[in-house]
């Protein structure tokens, strides 16, 4: 019969951990090894102190963005600079939202980053699956092409892209920044590396014997297995798309900006008030900081997992 063997997610959940908690097993093994030699070393107070310095260094500019966003331009033009919150946060946020166009920019960026994320993850999973598990002619050369692509900066193609959107009359329209970023070579590579290990070939064969065609195999076998990696790739792609800078600056203007375009407008003197500029930076960064606060562990795991194969 042509019904696919039901694949329960439990049986196919890959052994690979994507939560950045890699050393969970090795230390236990080391502990069995007994005392002293070769055991993963315990961090001392020196380590904690150095790390604490870096924690402060990593967070301080962000915290200070919020502090500066709560002060007036006049206060920011005084020494010593403010270290505590002032009372102008809402005024500045309001100005950044309206005069600085951050409201529209946030809305646009949600659409752009969302669309790019969905298409990147979808196409990367399909291609990654084919490269990981399916035999076909020209596979190695195509994979080399993917890896080579990762090394070529997309910035080098902006002139023709600009000529194209000028021809099409797409200047200032969101599809101009969505379409060129719908796929990513890194994504394909990332999904391939994951599926090579996580997707048991026997499972594919079993589905095949049961008469499932390729689309059914993808839907019922590949997608359930790929889901954790897809989630991580989605988060990484969303962050990258949100922060995309060069091309949006060229393709869009202040009339219909993304967050980065609006921030550039602020930075280049569109609203010459440092408190408002900082309020804009805060608004443009906050959504990603929230994503990080919730999924930080998974994103860390994803980067570390991707790196291991790089």
């Amino acid at each position: 019969m042509s019904t696919t063997t039901p694949v329960t997610p439990e049986t196919t959940t890959p052994v690979l951990e994507l939560d950045g908690d890699k050393p969970r097993t090795p230390p236990r093994r080391a502990a069995r090894g007994g005392s002293g030699a070769g055991r993963q070393m315990q961090a001392g107070w020196v380590t904690y102190t150095i790390l604490a310095v870096f924690v402060v260094g990593s967070l301080f500019p962000l915290v200070w963005t919020a502090i500066a966003a709560s002060h007036s331009n006049t206060r920011l033009a005084q020494t010593p600079p403010p270290f505590t919150f002032g009372d102008r946060l809402w005024t500045n946020l309001d100005q950044a939202w309206n005069t600085g166009n951050m409201g529209l920019a946030l809305f646009n960026t949600m659409i752009v980053a969302g669309a790019i994320t969905v298409s990147t993850v979808l196409f990367a999973t399909l291609a990654g699956f084919a490269f990981a598990k399916l035999p076909f002619r020209g596979k190695n050369i195509l994979m080399l092409l993917v890896i080579g692509t990762m090394m070529v900066p997309p910035q080098l193609g902006v002139v023709p892209l600009f000529m194209a959107i000028a021809e099409l009359g797409w200047t200032n329209q969101l599809q101009a920044v969505i379409l060129p970023m719908m796929v990513s070579a890194f994504g394909v590579f990332f999904m391939r590396q994951y599926l090579v290990q996580a997707l048991p070939t026997e499972l594919l064969e079993a589905a095949r014997v049961d008469g499932a065609n390729s689309l059914r195999v993808v839907w019922h076998v590949v997608l359930p297995v790929a889901r954790p990696a897809m989630a991580v790739l989605a988060m990484l792609t969303f962050v990258t798309a949100w922060n995309e800078f060069f091309w949006p600056i060229i393709a869009l203007t202040q009339q219909n900006p993304t967050v980065q375009v609006a921030l550039t407008g602020l930075g280049r003197g569109y609203v010459p008030d440092q408190g408002v500029i900082m309020a804009g930076a805060l608004l443009g960064t906050l959504p990603l900081l929230i994503v990080f606060a919730i999924f930080g562990k998974q994103i860390v795991g994803g980067i570390m997992h991707g790196a291991l194969k790089g």
Binding site: P61, L62, W64, V259, G284, I303
Partner: peptide, 17 residues
Amino acid sequence: VVMLTPYATSVAAATLV
């Protein structure tokens, strides 16, 4: 996670600060 947060900050926001 904390050490990765700057990575979530865009070039524009970071440079302005």
